[in-house]
Design a protein around this nucleic acid. Structure first.
Lengths: 217, 217
DNA sequence: ATTATACTTGTTTGCTACAAGCAATTAAAA
DNA sequence: TTTTAATTGCTTGTAGCAAACAAGTATAAT
C-alpha cells in the first residue's frame, strides 16, 4: 500500500543526495527571490519570505546565504553567469561592430525571454551602488569582465582592419556599456514602452557604428 | 553673566519661529541623511541615526517624514529641485545642441561642487527602480520634466533651422538622458576615474552632435 | 488662555542574525 | 553487510534592533 507522498511530490518522492537537495532548494529560493524582488523590491523582500515561499522554513534562506546581501549576491551571480555564457556563444567568431550588434540583440532577447530574472539582476545591480561591500565587489567583477570582452572585440576589429586604429578601444567600450545601462534603466522604469526601448537600441547602434568608423576604414 | 548657550549655540540662541525651526531641522536632517546614505548606503541608514546625528531625538526623522521612503523622497526632491533651477539658468536662451552641451557641463560642475548631494540623489534614484511606489512617482515626475526640457531644446533647434526636421526629438532626447544616467552610474561606482568620466562625456557630446546633425543642415 | 506646531518618549511588531538542535545522507569501521 | 560516526541540509528558538505609530511635552502663534 506504499503510496507516493502527497504533500510535496517533486521534492520528497525518491531518495535525494545532498547535492540534489542543495540544488533543489537553491533553485526554489532563487525563483522565490526573483519573484519577490521584482514584485516588491529589495527593501520589502525578507529572508523569511524567500524561505517560506520556496516551500521551506522561515530560516533556510538566512542559513544558506548568511544575510540579505548574501542572498542578493547569489541571485546576481546566478543570472550574470548565465548571461555571460549566452553572450560568449552569440559573439563567437565575431568582432568589432558585428559583435557589439550581436550583443545588443542578444541582450534584448534575453530580457524578453526571462524578464523577471533580468529585472532582478539589474535592480540589484543598480542598488549595489548604495554600497554593501560584498555586492559591490561581485558587481564590479562582472562589470570588469564585460568591459574587457567589449574592449577585446574592438581591438580585434582594429587588428582585422575593420576599425580605424585611431579609435580608443577602451573608452568606446566603456561608453557602450554605460549606454547599455542607461537603456536597461529606462526599460526597468518603463517596461511597457517597447517602441521606445527599441528606439534607444537603434540610436545606440547608430552611435556605436559612428564612433567605430571615425576617421577609419 | 548671561552667556550664550554652549550646548547647541546655533540652534537655541534666540527665539525661533516655527518656520525657522522647521527649516533648521529639515536642513540638519538633510545633511545627516546625505552623509549617512553616501557613507553606508540606504539599507544601513536608519531614521534613528538621521535624527540623532542631526542633533535631535531618535524619533524626529520618523515623525517628520513618516517613513524611510518619506525621508528619501524629501532628499530626492531637495536635490533635484535645486538641479532643475541650475539647469534652467544655464540653458536660458539656448537651444539645440548648444543647450545639451551646456547641460552636460553644468551637470559635471554640479557633481564636482557638491558630490555628496549628487551621489545621494542618484543612489536613491537608482534604488527607486526596486519600487517603493512613492519614490518611484517622485523620480518619474522629475524624469518626465527633464525629458520634456530636452525635447523642447531639440524642437526649438529644429524650429531655428539648426537641426534637421528629420530628427526625432523625443527619441533623441530620451537617448541623451539615458546616456547621462549611464555616465552617472559609472561615476558612482568609480568616483576616482575622472579621466574616464570625461571621456564618457566627450563621447556623448560626439554622439549627440552626430545624432542631431543626421541628414540635417 | 487656548490652540497649533515642533519635537520627544513609550510601545508594538516584525526582521535579521545567530545559536542550538534535528533529520537525512554519506563515509568509515566492524 | 551492518553498525557507527561524521557531515550536511534544514528547522526552531532567541536576542537585538529598527520602523511605525500612539501618546505626551514644550515652544510658538492667536
Amino acid at each position: 500500500m506504499q503510496q507516493p507522498c502527497l504533500t510535496s511530490p517533486a521534492k520528497s518522492l525518491p531518495r535525494k543526495s545532498h547535492a540534489e537537495r542543495l540544488e533543489l532548494s537553491d533553485s526554489a529560493m532563487f525563483d522565490a527571490a526573483v519573484k519577490l524582488i521584482v514584485e516588491q523590491g529589495t527593501a520589502k523582500t525578507t529572508l523569511k519570505a524567500v524561505g517560506e515561499s520556496a516551500g521551506y522554513s522561515r530560516g533556510l534562506a538566512g542559513s544558506r546565504f548568511n544575510s540579505k546581501a548574501g542572498l542578493y549576491c547569489f541571485v546576481i551571480r546566478r543570472v550574470a553567469d548565465y548571461w555571460l555564457d549566452v553572450m560568449k556563444k552569440e559573439t563567437r567568431n565575431k568582432s568589432g561592430y558585428e559583435a557589439i550588434h550581436a550583443t545588443i540583440d542578444a541582450h534584448y532577447q534575453f530580457s524578453k525571454k526571462t524578464p523577471d530574472s533580468v529585472r532582478a539582476l539589474y535592480i540589484l545591480w543598480f542598488e549595489s551602488i548604495g554600497l554593501d561591500s560584498d555586492m559591490r565587489d561581485v558587481v564590479a567583477a562582472i562589470h570588469r569582465r564585460r568591459l574587457s570582452d567589449v574592449t577585446e572585440w574592438i581591438t580585434q576589429g582594429i587588428g582585422a582592419g575593420k576599425i580605424s586604429p585611431d579609435v580608443e578601444a577602451r573608452a568606446v567600450a566603456q561608453y557602450f556599456l554605460t549606454s547599455m545601462f542607461g537603456i536597461v534603466y529606462q526599460w526597468l522604469i518603463d517596461p511597457g514602452q517597447e517602441r521606445e526601448i527599441e528606439n534607444l537600441h537603434d540610436n545606440l547602434k547608430i552611435s556605436m557604428r559612428y564612433l567605430l568608423s571615425k576617421s577609419g576604414a
